[in-house]
Simulated assay, not measured.
Amino acid sequence: MTTETRPTTGPAARSRQVAALRPGYLADLADGTDRFFEPRRADCPWCGSTALRRRLRTTDLLQHKPGRFGLDACGGCGHVFQNPRLNGAGLEFYYRDFYDGLGEQRLAGLFGTRAAVYRGRARAAAPYASAPGRWLDVGTGHGHFCETARADFPDTVFDGLDLSEGVELAEHSGRLARGFRGSFPELAAGPSSELAGRYDVVSMFHYLEHSTDPGRELAAAREALRPGGLLLIEVPDPRCRYARLLGRWWLPWLQPQHLNLVPAANLSERLGELGFTVLTEQHREPHDPVDLLAACWLLLDAVAPREDAPWLPGAPPGRLRRALRGACFLAGSPVLLLAALLDRLVAPVAGRAGLSNAYRLVARRGA
């Protein structure tokens, strides 16, 4: 059950929005969360090996929606994947009000402040494509990357693709020349597709980990690119040492949204099978120095009283609970500041120390 509610501003408006959404969420949860999952699989979705081990068990640490989630690691190829995986109904439930609806304003504000990160991603293409004609950003969200990248590539036409309505808002606001809403493999399929062979660059920044079948997404990128076109991919690195040091508090696990975390060697090999040549593999440049800060914030958020949310039963938090929540974060602010400082100090050596939380590949499509 889905209730569409446009984002509003202010605490009172948010409370009304939460109240309007609550009946729908509680109806969805009336029969529990088991119906949101596929059967548990016994083999690796990347290589087929049955040598699996439990990597992580956690809850939704960001929205605090009900449910428990597991990640398994393949002993054969190192692929990490959600097992059992969310089905279509589960993906709809757990994504709802995260990027759109109730969460749209908060996330749009966050993504709109990451211009330096977006410039670094865009410039990764510059040594290999100084003036691309058309660029498709897959998983573009509200199109903030394309808006920023236009400063470095003023003659490039930027299109975006996403499952959420944010891509339509991005086209309407002028961040994108065209906004395509839907599944990339479906929209790129077949020679008559509007996307087929149209692009000089296709980018997938922190997109593949959300997909149910990364291999299909890579094949779709090949279809959308012209011969000789560039594919830019950036994803969390499951081999990052922070993943073990911080356990379930490592932000890039991002359960239940991240379904597949692919090691760089696996991704390079699959790209080769699809006719791509990997031009560069970067670990230092895509590292986002937030691991310790995010872990401390998630811990504080876990112990603090909950904010009001439509999927949580009971009465909305009163003045006392809101005050206690504020007091928890105020008391933890010195720890948050120290963690942020340590993140910055580690950042210059993160790549060499195996602490980079992401990697980036730039690959060229063959003829």
Rank of each mutant, 00 (worst) to 15 (best):
5 T>A: 14
8 T>C: 11
11 P>T: 08
13 A>K: 09
13 A>G: 10
15 S>T: 14
20 A>C: 05
31 D>S: 04
38 E>M: 08
45 P>L: 13
45 P>C: 08
45 P>S: 08
47 C>K: 13
61 L>D: 02
72 D>C: 04
78 G>H: 12
80 V>H: 14
87 N>D: 03
88 G>M: 10
89 A>C: 04
95 Y>G: 00
96 R>D: 02
101 G>K: 14
106 R>Q: 08
109 G>L: 08
111 F>E: 04
119 R>N: 01
126 A>P: 05
133 G>L: 08
133 G>D: 11
138 V>M: 02
138 V>H: 01
142 H>M: 11
151 A>T: 12
155 D>H: 12
156 T>V: 06
162 D>Q: 11
164 S>K: 13
168 E>L: 15
171 E>A: 15
173 S>E: 15
174 G>V: 12
177 A>Y: 07
186 E>L: 12
186 E>Y: 02
189 A>H: 05
202 V>I: 13
211 S>C: 14
212 T>Q: 12
221 A>G: 09
222 R>E: 00
225 L>E: 00
227 P>L: 07
230 L>Y: 02
230 L>R: 07
231 L>C: 02
234 E>G: 01
234 E>L: 15
237 D>N: 15
242 Y>V: 05
251 L>I: 05
254 L>M: 13
260 N>Y: 06
269 E>G: 08
272 G>V: 14
277 T>C: 04
290 V>E: 09
295 A>E: 15
302 A>D: 15
303 V>G: 00
308 D>R: 14
321 R>D: 00
328 C>G: 01
332 G>A: 11
347 A>K: 09
349 V>Y: 06
350 A>Y: 01
353 A>R: 11
354 G>T: 12
354 G>N: 10
358 A>K: 15
